[in-house]
């Protein structure tokens, strides 16, 4: 743009360039409300969480007024309370199992859906995403009622019921990114691998899977974190027997334990930071398309 401005010499063009420069400034200002919104409602709450996570309420015995003091107490509470450590491990366990099952089901599914010989119908992909448009709590309730009818309920099989519910809910999030990478697979490379004598298993593990890595990474990210932090699914399907991060933060919230709750949220934020770092490294362009849904 600068070279353009330098090239304009006639007065009329000069005027236009001036107007353009002025408006270029104006257009930039359009994002000010967006930035303000982000500062007020995205960053400020996170700062407050960090503040609460490293302070504790101290009541002054003389004046009976409470104030906050810097303290490691929430951190100590987190690591010394067996129930909290338990929440961490159960969350990691359920999230890992859910992600694995979703990948095992979703990978071949995306592969078949992207294969033009097997599936000519693009609507099918939409159908796999369509359940997301029915209310999420209602779907979770439906899964629970069906499982109860089959005799699998939170009372008898809390883990099984929860994992079934999670897979049911997060499968579309795995299918979409995998499907988009699968449609972009280099077909000639796969054929070449076959022609050069690789058997189907080798083609799969040495060619297709490495090509699909960005899709796999973003599929994992879109399942793992939401599973760890989910509230409704674990609460409804295990009938409150399984406590994940989401459930525990909610519990701290109802108990008005701001500091301990904030520390839990802080731990969650640390996990999220790691995820963000990974997603920056791998599935950059993939995430964009998945984000469209």
């Amino acid at each position: 743009m600068k070279s353009n401005e330098a090239a304009t010499k006639t007065p009329k063009a000069d005027k236009k360039a001036k107007a353009k420069r002025f408006f270029a400034l104006q257009r930039k200002y359009l994002c000010i409300p967006y930035i303000i919104f982000f500062i007020l409602f995205i960053f400020a709450p996170i700062v407050i969480i960090l503040f609460y996570a490293f302070t504790y309420e101290v009541v002054d015995p003389a004046t009976h007024t409470a104030h906050f003091e810097f303290s490691w107490q929430p951190l100590v509470n987190f690591f010394t309370d067996p129930s909290k450590i338990n929440v961490l491990f159960v969350s990691l366990f359920i999230a890992t199992i859910t992600t694995l099952i979703c990948l095992i089901i979703g990978f071949p599914l995306a592969y078949f859906l992207a294969d033009k010989k097997i599936n000519k119908n693009a609507v099918l992909v939409t159908l796999f995403v369509a359940p997301m448009w029915i209310n999420f709590v209602l779907r979770t309730g439906a899964t629970r009622d069906l499982l109860t009818w089959f005799g699998i309920n939170g009372g008898t099989h809390p883990y099984l019921a929860t994992i079934i519910g999670m897979v049911q809910n997060y499968l579309p999030f795995v299918i979409l990114p995998l499907y988009t990478t699968m449609t972009k697979l280099d077909k000639s490379q796969i054929e070449a691998a076959g022609d050069l004598g690789a058997n189907p298993a080798q083609v799969m593990f040495k060619n297709i899977i490495p090509q699909a890595i960005p899709g796999i990474v973003s599929a994992c990210l879109m399942t793992f974190m939401p599973t760890m932090s989910s509230y409704v699914i674990s609460d409804v399907l295990s009938e409150g027997k399984i406590t994940l991060f989401g459930n525990y933060i909610e519990l701290e919230f109802t108990n008005k334990a701001w500091n301990d709750g904030s520390f839990m949220a802080f731990v969650m934020l640390l996990f999220i930071a790691v995820t963000m770092f990974i997603s920056q490294k791998f599935g950059k362009d993939d995430e964009k398309e998945a984000g469209q849904w």
């Binding site: 995205i42 709450p45 969480i49 509230y231 991060f245 919230f253 709750g261 934020l269 999220i272 963000m276």
Partner: peptide, 20 residues
């Protein structure tokens, strides 16, 4: 900055806003 609420867990968004 836009990526932050995308990757952030819903429960953290909810909890932090409410605490604020």
């Amino acid at each position: 900055a836009t990526q932050i609420p995308v990757v952030n867990a819903e429960i953290v968004v909810a909890f932090s806003l409410t605490v604020m």
